[in-house]
Design a protein around this nucleic acid. Structure first.
Length: 858
RNA sequence: GCCGCCUUAGCUCAGUGGUAGAGCGCAUCCUUGGUAAGGCUGAGGUCGACAGUUCAAUCCUGUCAGGCGGCACCA
């Protein structure tokens, strides 16, 4: 007899797993006919500390990995490090440490608590993206993309983060600010490397349909992000006033049906026509400069004020050469979407209407809502964007919108003025970063030969160790020797590319590298063919667009090159919620840590002085609010299994879970209760359980539990599985070992054996201790998953509720599957039912087999 | 503004077209040789609001309200 002591048991069993290499992944040959299962959690950035979010993420993956192992799968469950990135350089600048040393020390510091979590991981496959063995292979992949034209270099307007002194992808700009620094982003012109993700825009959308084990939400977000739209691309002929060389204005529209409602043509401030006109028009030049300044500011976007400049240029309407439209430069037109020019149809587009009202341009309705009168229908301050019939539109009159679009496109195409087109919001992925701590782009710039790839034999291009961080900007650019190399082609003095990759490149293929992380090619095709796709990927929803879209893109690019055999890297995706905690603020406005406050007489006070403390709300654990609970402290106090159990138990996995002391104590108590039942069981193996009454209820409960927990695991409802464990404890308690008959003891033994295996994915250390206490052979981690015996659920009698006019009035027993007429007779004969239908006419009786009877009277 | 999700006990959440549930918390009592405790019993619900479909709605449909998330001058 004794309490379960995680401090002794947990290290013991971890040592056993390590000694026996329990979680080593089998080679395909070893696996034989075991099916493969690849479960992966998004690998961590090595910040140096693990947090509760890691605990939750990796525990979830571990639950899946252990469950699938028990089911006989050959499981790949690896771990690595997303190790390049800004924080290492910030640490270098702030503390004078080298990014490399800082990163590897952090990895070492995080590896220990992760191992302490008891994760069923094959650690032999571990790598960090900053290992030259990894990024060297990444350089090979890039050169392959370059060879195929999927990587290219061009000058472009980029998002420049003035704090991090680097370029950001569009996806990394949030509300006009850098996603990491939070500083307002500036527009700059730079020559950058891009990956041609737009080449796969259609396929990335189409592929979403097949991802039926992804959250709808994430698929929707990706679809919106790619932003496909169908429309018409065509040109207006310039009628008058344009500089030479500009005899056309190319526009894109999704509403060709409204062409007869056009009242102006608008171009972006950076449109070539606008720039050409500005050369001889100072007022226009000033307007363009103003657009550039204001365009980035959040307040202006918020206000949404439309501003324009009439260029004096006119163009001819495509359907009527005599109809002239003015060309305006407008601040709300984006140069990098479509053609950077539009035609304005104020009656049916709110932006165009705002603009037209401000500058007093014509507003001609051409779509007539059903029931409206063509003679009197007008548009005031709200554009009409609903359905209707086309009018005021010559040959389009009377058509529905979709018909009119087709007709207008057909006419424009027949006239040779343009054609139907698909346009995407998605833009190519800029991957150049002006940083040191990233994968060097393996390119040499030669004054004569231009862009020259680093030859395969000279890879990897290693980062130099001797760099200085005393100034902002990229140390590679300032390095005295590193970048000066001879041109591989002509041998003349040349320079290395000093930009490094966006770290999202590193994480776009690591899952494929795990198939064989020591291969001397980027991806071991045979191993990747065996393991990919990842069967279950788990991570935060914050990566719904960035990481997951890049990974899907790169996998397609690699598949087209025959390097991998699948287009979709992640067959199943689960996005888990955050770990939150109440935040506490003292009277003087200081944030207090959870371990600095306590509840006294129902009020929160600070522990030291007993002064009242305000509970500010439940927020994501963060340093700034100081509402952080360190996993290591919890491991120390309650054990690893209690921490694992708690992050799985209180909320559905996709939602946020609120960390609380009461919650982890509840987890601790469940662990003790489970152990107490094993501890109370007499040693030795009783005979096989029989169906005698003394053990039947217990047998039913344990087999039902097996069914329920299996279902909970299959559907990612871990919190439900934990709730079922709680219920099982009540059943075990009502069938105690003390004074039990042999039949009950046998049923208990069976129930406990099932229970130990069922809890193993959740509380692996406790499960081993229980398994061992029960006298079962080997490790529970090697034991097969229990199967429920359906025969136990068969019952010969069912209990039915009886309703009268929809209200429950009685309960009757009837043979299982009894005929409706018999059940009806039993129900009508029931004393309680008689009472409720007395004096009324029975109008109808509804019998739902084995469930309920409803008697309608009146 | 557009799109999506959520709303069930004090809290965190299950659940089902047919008898409303769990954990935690709370209250009462028992135990104090299982003790950083254990146990018994109990209270607590207009299933966000309204309307519709149905013999029957917490569940299906619609409208509204509140909360959360994503996108946002994308032509």
């Amino acid at each position: 007899m004794g309490r379960y002591n995680p401090k002794v048991s947990e290290p013991h069993w971890r040592a056993r797993w390590a000694d026996t290499d329990t979680f080593r992944t089998l080679t395909p040959e070893e696996a034989g006919d075991r099916p493969k299962y690849y479960v992966l959690e998004m690998f961590p950035y090595p910040s140096g500390r693990i947090h509760m979010g890691h605990v939750r993420n990796y525990t979830m993956g571990d639950v899946v990995a252990r469950y699938k192992r028990a089911q006989g799968f050959n499981v790949l469950h690896p771990m690595g490090w997303d190790a390049f990135g800004m924080p290492a350089e910030n640490a270098a600048m702030e503390k004078g440490v080298h990014p490399k040393g800082w990163t590897y020390e952090n990895i070492a510091a995080m590896r220990e608590p992760l191992k302490q979590l008891g994760l069923a991981i094959d650690w032999s496959r571990e790598f960090a993206t900053c290992d030259p063995e990894y990024y060297g292979q990444e350089q090979k992949l890039f050169l392959e993309l370059y060879r195929r034209g999927l990587a290219y270099r061009r000058e472009g307007v980029v998002n420049w983060d003035p704090v991090d002194m680097t370029v950001l992808a569009n996806e990394q700009v949030i509300d006009g600010c850098g996603w990491r620094s939070g500083a307002p982003v500036e527009k700059r012109k730079l020559t950058q490397w891009f990956l041609r993700i737009t080449h796969y825009a259609d396929d990335l959308i189409e592929g979403l349909k097949g991802l039926d084990r992804w959250p709808d939400k994430v698929r929707l977000m990706q679809e919106n992000w790619i932003g496909r739209s169908q429309g018409l691309r065509f040109h207006f002929d310039v009628a008058d006033g344009a500089p030479s060389g500009f005899d056309r204005v190319e526009v894109y529209t999704t509403r060709p049906d409204t062409l007869y409602g056009a009242s102006f043509v608008g171009v972006a401030a950076d449109h070539p026509l606008a720039l050409a006109l500005a050369e001889s028009n100072p007022a226009l030049a000033e307007f363009i400069a103003e657009c550039r300044r204001g365009g980035a500011s959040e307040a202006d976007i918020e206000a949404g004020e439309k501003k324009g400049f009439d260029t004096g240029v006119t163009v001819s309407h495509p359907f009527d050469p005599d109809w002239k439209l003015p060309v305006w430069v407008a601040n709300f037109i984006l140069m990098d979407y479509g053609t950077g020019a539009i035609f304005g149809c104020p009656a049916h587009d709110q932006r165009d209407l705002d603009f037209a009202r401000k500058y007093d341009l014509a507003v001609t309705p051409v779509v007539l809502p059903a029931g409206a009168d063509a003679a009197s229908f007008t548009v005031g301050t709200e554009a009409y964007v609903g359905p209707g019939r086309i009018f005021n539109s010559q040959f389009l009159d009377g058509l529905a919108i979709e018909e009119a679009k087709a007709a207008a496109i057909a006419r424009v195409e027949a006239d040779g003025r343009g054609q139907g087109a698909t346009v995407y919001r998605l833009r190519d992925w800029g991957v150049s970063r002006q940083r040191y701590w990233g994968c060097p782009i393996p390119i040499i710039h030669c004054p004569d030969c231009g862009v020259v790839p680093v030859p395969q034999g000279q890879l990897p291009v290693r980062l130099p160790d001797d760099v200085a961080f005393d100034k902002p900007g990229n140390p590679l650019l300032r390095h005295p020797t590193w970048r000066f190399v001879p041109c591989p082609t002509c041998g003349k003095a040349a320079e290395r590319e000093t930009d490094t990759f966006d770290t999202f490149v590193d994480s776009s293929w690591y899952f494929a590298r795990f198939a064989n992380p020591r291969a001397d090619t980027p991806i071991d095709k045979a191993a990747a063919d065996y393991w990919l796709p990842v069967d279950q990927y788990i991570g935060g929803v914050e990566h719904a667009v960035l990481h997951l879209l890049y990974a899907r893109f790169l996998t397609r690019a690699l598949a087209d090159d025959g390097l991998v055999g699948v287009k979709e890297p992640f067959a199943g995706l689960f996005t888990q919620g955050m770990v939150t905690h109440e935040a506490y603020r003292s009277q003087n406005g200081m944030w207090l840590q959870p371990n600095e406050v306590e509840k006294r007489d129902g009020l929160w006070v600070d522990t030291e002085f007993g002064r009242p403390v305000e509970v500010v709300g439940v927020e994501k654990m963060s340093k700034s609010k100081r509402n952080v609970v360190a996993p290591e402290d919890i491991f120390e106090q309650y054990g690893v299994d209690a921490a694992r159990l708690f992050v799985l138990s209180d909320s559905p996995p996709e939602r946020d879970v609120q960390w609380s002391t009461a919650g982890v104590e509840g987890a601790w108590r469940l662990i003790q209760r489970i152990w107490a039942e094993f501890d109370a069981q007499p040693e030795g193996r009783p005979g096989a359980p029989d169906l005698s009454e003394d053990g039947l209820a217990l047998r039913r409960a344990s087999h039902l539990l097996a069914r329920q927990i299996t279902e909970g695991l299959e559907t990612f409802r871990f919190n439900l599985a934990v709730a079922r464990m709680h219920e099982m404890m009540a059943v075990l308690k009502s069938h105690p070992a003390a004074g039990a008959s042999p039949a009950r003891l046998a049923a208990r033994h069976e129930a406990l054996s099932i229970l130990a295996r069922l809890i193993a994915p959740f509380m692996p250390h406790l499960a081993e201790e229980c398994w061992s206490r029960l006298g079962e052979d080997g490790l529970v981690a090697e034991a097969p998953w229990p199967k429920a015996d359906p025969a136990l659920f068969a019952q010969d009698e069912s209990v039915l509720a009886v309703q009268v006019n929809g209200k429950r009035r009685a309960e009757i027993r009837a043979p299982k599957g009894a005929a409706e007429a018999d059940v009806e007779a039993i129900a009508l004969a029931d004393a309680d039912v008689q009472r409720h239908i007395a004096g009324q006419t029975v109008r109808k009786v509804v019998v739902v087999r084995d469930r309920i009877v409803n008697i309608v009277v009146g």
